[in-house]
Protein backbone atom coordinates (compact mmCIF):
# COMPACT_ATOMS: atom_id res chain seq x y z
CA UNK A 1 0.00 0.00 0.00
CA UNK A 2 1.15 3.45 -0.63
CA UNK A 3 1.38 5.69 2.27
CA UNK A 4 0.60 9.24 1.52
CA UNK A 5 1.44 12.02 3.78
CA UNK A 6 0.13 15.42 3.21
CA UNK A 7 1.08 18.63 4.67
CA UNK A 8 -0.84 21.74 4.04
CA UNK A 9 -0.11 25.09 5.36
CA UNK A 10 -2.51 27.92 5.05
CA UNK A 11 -1.30 31.44 5.04
CA UNK A 12 -3.41 33.84 6.85
CA UNK A 13 -2.62 37.47 7.19
CA UNK A 14 -4.12 39.11 10.14
CA UNK A 15 -4.53 42.77 10.92
CA UNK A 16 -2.52 43.25 14.04
CA UNK A 17 -3.75 45.60 16.70
CA UNK A 18 -1.39 47.45 18.92
CA UNK A 19 -1.27 44.84 21.68
CA UNK A 20 -0.53 41.91 19.28
CA UNK A 21 -3.12 39.51 20.67
CA UNK A 22 -5.26 37.38 18.42
CA UNK A 23 -8.54 39.27 18.37
CA UNK A 24 -11.61 38.94 16.21
CA UNK A 25 -11.87 41.52 13.49
CA UNK A 26 -14.86 43.62 12.70
CA UNK A 27 -16.14 44.21 9.19
CA UNK A 28 -14.50 47.57 8.65
CA UNK A 29 -11.07 46.21 9.57
CA UNK A 30 -11.49 43.15 7.39
CA UNK A 31 -12.39 45.33 4.43
CA UNK A 32 -9.05 47.08 4.62
CA UNK A 33 -7.06 43.92 4.21
CA UNK A 34 -5.78 43.09 0.76
CA UNK A 35 -4.85 39.53 1.40
CA UNK A 36 -2.29 37.39 -0.31
CA UNK A 37 -4.76 35.69 -2.59
CA UNK A 38 -3.67 32.44 -4.06
CA UNK A 39 -2.49 29.07 -2.93
CA UNK A 40 0.59 28.00 -0.99
CA UNK A 41 1.38 24.35 -1.39
CA UNK A 42 3.62 21.90 0.27
CA UNK A 43 3.52 18.32 -0.65
CA UNK A 44 5.17 15.02 -0.66
CA UNK A 45 4.36 12.22 -2.98
CA UNK A 46 5.96 8.97 -3.77
CA UNK A 47 5.60 6.53 -6.61
CA UNK A 48 5.95 2.82 -5.92
CA UNK A 49 8.20 3.31 -2.93
CA UNK A 50 7.07 -0.08 -1.69
CA UNK A 51 6.28 -1.59 -5.05
CA UNK A 52 3.09 -1.51 -7.03
CA UNK A 53 0.05 -3.75 -7.35
CA UNK A 54 1.13 -5.69 -10.45
CA UNK A 55 4.54 -7.01 -9.45
CA UNK A 56 4.07 -7.16 -5.71
CA UNK A 57 6.72 -9.76 -5.00
CA UNK A 58 9.44 -7.78 -6.73
CA UNK A 59 9.71 -10.01 -9.81
CA UNK A 60 8.38 -9.55 -13.34
CA UNK A 61 7.53 -12.79 -15.13
CA UNK A 62 8.04 -13.52 -18.80
CA UNK A 63 5.20 -14.94 -20.87
CA UNK A 64 4.72 -17.25 -23.82
CA UNK A 65 1.78 -17.50 -26.18
CA UNK A 66 -0.53 -20.50 -25.80
CA UNK A 67 -2.49 -22.22 -28.59
CA UNK A 68 -5.03 -19.42 -28.73
CA UNK A 69 -2.35 -16.72 -28.85
CA UNK A 70 -3.03 -15.69 -25.26
CA UNK A 71 -0.06 -14.93 -22.99
CA UNK A 72 0.62 -17.39 -20.17
CA UNK A 73 3.50 -17.32 -17.73
CA UNK A 74 6.60 -19.03 -19.13
CA UNK A 75 8.12 -20.93 -16.25
CA UNK A 76 11.20 -21.92 -18.22
CA UNK A 77 12.57 -18.38 -18.08
CA UNK A 78 13.44 -17.01 -14.67
CA UNK A 79 11.52 -13.80 -13.99
CA UNK A 80 13.17 -10.40 -14.05
CA UNK A 81 14.27 -9.35 -10.57
CA UNK A 82 13.53 -5.75 -9.69
CA UNK A 83 16.16 -3.76 -7.80
CA UNK A 84 15.85 -4.22 -4.04
CA UNK A 85 12.69 -6.27 -4.52
CA UNK A 86 10.68 -3.18 -5.36
CA UNK A 87 9.31 -2.78 -8.92
CA UNK A 88 8.80 0.74 -10.13
CA UNK A 89 6.27 2.06 -12.59
CA UNK A 90 6.60 1.22 -16.28
CA UNK A 91 5.33 3.62 -18.91
CA UNK A 92 5.54 2.61 -22.59
CA UNK A 93 4.73 4.83 -25.55
CA UNK A 94 4.52 3.84 -29.21
CA UNK A 95 4.99 6.74 -31.61
CA UNK A 96 3.90 5.01 -34.79
CA UNK A 97 0.91 2.76 -35.32
CA UNK A 98 2.87 0.43 -37.54
CA UNK A 99 6.18 0.14 -35.75
CA UNK A 100 7.12 -2.64 -33.35
CA UNK A 101 9.13 -0.41 -31.06
CA UNK A 102 8.06 1.29 -27.83
CA UNK A 103 9.86 4.02 -25.91
CA UNK A 104 9.82 3.08 -22.24
CA UNK A 105 10.29 4.79 -18.88
CA UNK A 106 10.90 1.84 -16.60
CA UNK A 107 11.35 1.27 -12.88
CA UNK A 108 10.16 4.76 -11.99
CA UNK A 109 9.97 4.97 -8.24
CA UNK A 110 10.89 7.15 -5.33
CA UNK A 111 9.72 10.10 -3.35
CA UNK A 112 9.66 13.79 -3.97
CA UNK A 113 8.78 16.53 -1.55
CA UNK A 114 8.60 20.29 -1.82
CA UNK A 115 7.50 23.18 0.29
CA UNK A 116 6.45 26.59 -0.80
CA UNK A 117 5.00 26.14 -4.25
CA UNK A 118 2.70 29.11 -4.73
CA UNK A 119 -0.08 29.47 -7.25
CA UNK A 120 -1.87 32.73 -7.97
CA UNK A 121 -2.97 35.07 -10.70
CA UNK A 122 -1.05 38.22 -11.17
CA UNK A 123 -2.03 41.25 -13.16
CA UNK A 124 0.84 42.24 -15.42
CA UNK A 125 0.96 45.99 -15.73
CA UNK A 126 3.98 46.20 -17.95
CA UNK A 127 6.39 44.00 -19.83
CA UNK A 128 9.76 44.44 -21.51
CA UNK A 129 9.74 44.32 -25.31
CA UNK A 130 13.21 43.12 -26.29
CA UNK A 131 12.53 43.81 -29.96
CA UNK A 132 12.25 47.56 -29.50
CA UNK A 133 14.86 49.93 -28.05
CA UNK A 134 13.76 53.09 -26.33
CA UNK A 135 16.27 55.86 -27.04
CA UNK A 136 14.85 58.05 -24.29
CA UNK A 137 15.47 55.64 -21.47
CA UNK A 138 18.44 53.91 -23.21
CA UNK A 139 16.94 50.55 -22.43
CA UNK A 140 14.47 48.08 -23.85
CA UNK A 141 11.00 49.51 -24.32
CA UNK A 142 8.48 48.88 -21.57
CA UNK A 143 5.00 48.15 -22.89
CA UNK A 144 1.99 48.94 -20.72
CA UNK A 145 -0.35 46.00 -20.28
CA UNK A 146 -3.32 44.94 -18.31
CA UNK A 147 -3.18 41.17 -18.49
CA UNK A 148 -3.85 38.39 -16.03
CA UNK A 149 -1.31 35.62 -15.93
CA UNK A 150 -1.02 32.57 -13.76
CA UNK A 151 2.11 32.77 -11.65
CA UNK A 152 3.52 29.61 -10.16
CA UNK A 153 6.23 30.30 -7.62
CA UNK A 154 8.74 27.47 -7.65
CA UNK A 155 9.38 25.96 -4.23
CA UNK A 156 13.05 26.87 -3.89
CA UNK A 157 14.08 23.42 -2.76
CA UNK A 158 12.77 20.10 -4.00
CA UNK A 159 13.92 17.04 -2.10
CA UNK A 160 14.19 13.67 -3.78
CA UNK A 161 14.28 10.46 -1.87
CA UNK A 162 15.68 7.50 -3.85
CA UNK A 163 14.00 8.81 -6.98
CA UNK A 164 15.01 6.78 -10.01
CA UNK A 165 13.96 5.76 -13.47
CA UNK A 166 15.40 4.07 -16.55
CA UNK A 167 14.99 5.05 -20.16
CA UNK A 168 14.69 2.02 -22.46
CA UNK A 169 13.38 0.84 -25.81
CA UNK A 170 11.29 -2.33 -26.03
CA UNK A 171 9.44 -4.28 -28.64
CA UNK A 172 6.18 -4.62 -26.71
CA UNK A 173 4.10 -2.41 -24.48
CA UNK A 174 3.49 -5.07 -21.83
CA UNK A 175 6.56 -6.32 -20.03
CA UNK A 176 7.53 -9.89 -20.81
CA UNK A 177 4.76 -10.57 -23.34
CA UNK A 178 6.00 -11.79 -26.74
CA UNK A 179 4.68 -10.34 -29.99
CA UNK A 180 1.72 -11.88 -31.79
CA UNK A 181 4.04 -13.57 -34.31
CA UNK A 182 5.97 -15.24 -31.51
CA UNK A 183 9.03 -12.95 -31.40
CA UNK A 184 10.39 -12.95 -27.86
CA UNK A 185 10.04 -9.86 -25.71
CA UNK A 186 13.14 -7.68 -25.66
CA UNK A 187 13.85 -4.49 -23.76
CA UNK A 188 17.11 -2.59 -24.16
CA UNK A 189 17.99 -0.22 -21.35
CA UNK A 190 19.73 2.91 -22.63
CA UNK A 191 20.50 4.67 -19.37
CA UNK A 192 19.06 5.27 -15.94
CA UNK A 193 19.07 8.18 -13.51
CA UNK A 194 19.05 8.09 -9.71
CA UNK A 195 18.47 11.24 -7.69
CA UNK A 196 18.80 11.65 -3.97
CA UNK A 197 18.87 14.86 -2.00
CA UNK A 198 17.74 18.42 -2.40
CA UNK A 199 17.95 20.37 -5.64
CA UNK A 200 17.56 24.10 -5.87
CA UNK A 201 14.69 25.20 -8.08
CA UNK A 202 13.99 28.89 -7.82
CA UNK A 203 11.95 31.32 -9.79
CA UNK A 204 8.47 32.09 -11.00
CA UNK A 205 6.72 30.36 -13.86
CA UNK A 206 4.20 32.51 -15.72
CA UNK A 207 1.50 30.82 -17.77
CA UNK A 208 -0.78 32.65 -20.16
CA UNK A 209 -2.64 32.01 -23.40
CA UNK A 210 -1.12 33.01 -26.74
CA UNK A 211 -2.76 33.41 -30.10
Amino acid sequence: MIKNTLKTIALISVAVSSNAELVSMDESNLANISGQGGVYLSGEFSINKEGGPLWEDGTRPYYQLDGNGEPVVDNSISPDQCNNGVCGLRLAIKLNENSEGWYVIDDLSGGMSFEGLTLRTVNIKSAVDYDVWDDNTNDFQIVALDEEVLQIGLPGKVTFNDFKFKYAVANNGEFGVPLADGTAFKQTEIFGVELNGAITLQGNLLLFPVD
Binding site: K157, F160, K164, K166, E189, I190, F191, G192, V193, E194, L195, N196, G197, A198, I199, T200, L201, Q202
Partner: peptide, 12 residues
Protein backbone atom coordinates in the same frame (compact mmCIF):
# COMPACT_ATOMS: atom_id res chain seq x y z
CA UNK B 1 18.35 25.19 -11.11
CA UNK B 2 21.16 23.55 -9.20
CA UNK B 3 21.61 19.93 -8.18
CA UNK B 4 24.60 20.71 -5.99
CA UNK B 5 22.95 19.49 -2.84
CA UNK B 6 21.82 16.20 -4.32
CA UNK B 7 23.56 13.10 -5.55
CA UNK B 8 22.66 12.29 -9.11
CA UNK B 9 23.87 9.08 -10.75
CA UNK B 10 23.59 7.81 -14.29
CA UNK B 11 23.21 4.03 -14.49
CA UNK B 12 23.02 1.45 -17.23
Amino acid sequence: LSTDGASLNVTG
